[in-house]
């Protein structure tokens, strides 16, 4: 009976968003900035971070001009995490990039994601219900969604807030890696809306 109730609760939550935390992360295949097909399933056995990205959004700029995002990319990829930066800006909308532009912008900022994935139709963004840039997700080695939400605990456009903020992505990864449940698996993302 208890199990039954749990299932119903999970269904109820599922109907409000897209993929509830701790259920299977939606699968996808996208073309990366270098032209290769990249699927989420390619990375079973590894933690995967998904970062929704619009390089012209001031909140994204906050986290790149301060090196906050790049530092996290380097730290986590250094620990074997796959970091996928996804751009769901539609053609003609702010932040929309082709592969060459994506690589140029990311190189200019000394960013270090594993790949930049192009999602100009917004299909994958909508599958994840990505609302803002940035909007961060963490997927477990088994392909379960572990975290869905904000980069950190202080919603602002001011880079001076970063040292005072708790980085939710790092915290979720460290908890999961340590065999613990993610204490704050879903938070409210903040930033510009995704330009679908």
């Amino acid at each position: 009976m208890n199990l039954m109730l749990t299932c119903l609760a999970a269904l109820a939550i599922g109907s409000t968003g897209t993929a509830p935390v701790n259920s299977a992360a939606p699968t996808f295949t996208l073309t990366d900035a270098k032209g290769a097909k990249v699927s989420l399933e390619d990375f079973r056995g590894k933690y995967v971070v998904l970062e929704w990205w619009n390089y012209q959004c001031p909140i994204v700029v906050k986290h790149y001009s301060s090196q906050n995002m790049q530092n996290l990319q380097r730290k986590l990829t250094g620990e074997g995490v796959v970091w996928l930066t996804i751009c769901s800006s539609a053609p003609g909308k702010q932040g929309n990039v082709d592969g060459a532009k994506a690589l140029e912008v990311m190189a200019g900022q000394k960013g270090a994601p594993t790949s930049i994935l192009l999602d100009p139709t917004g299909e994958v963004g909508k599958k994840y219900d990505a609302k803002t840039t940035p909007h961060m997700f963490l997927v477990s080695p088994k392909g379960e969604l572990l975290y869905d939400g904000a980069i950190d605990s202080i919603p602002s456009s001011n880079a001076a807030d970063i040292p005072k903020a708790e980085n939710y992505v790092l915290k979720a990864f460290e908890e999961a890696k340590g065999g613990k449940a993610v204490s704050n698996p879903k938070t409210r993302p903040y930033g510009c809306n995704v330009k679908y």
């Binding site: 959004c57 001031p58 702010q94 602002s156 456009s157």
Partner: peptide
Amino acid sequence: ASWLACKEECVP
């Protein structure tokens, strides 16, 4: 004061 002004794009 601080604000985020948005139309399609946003400017803090």
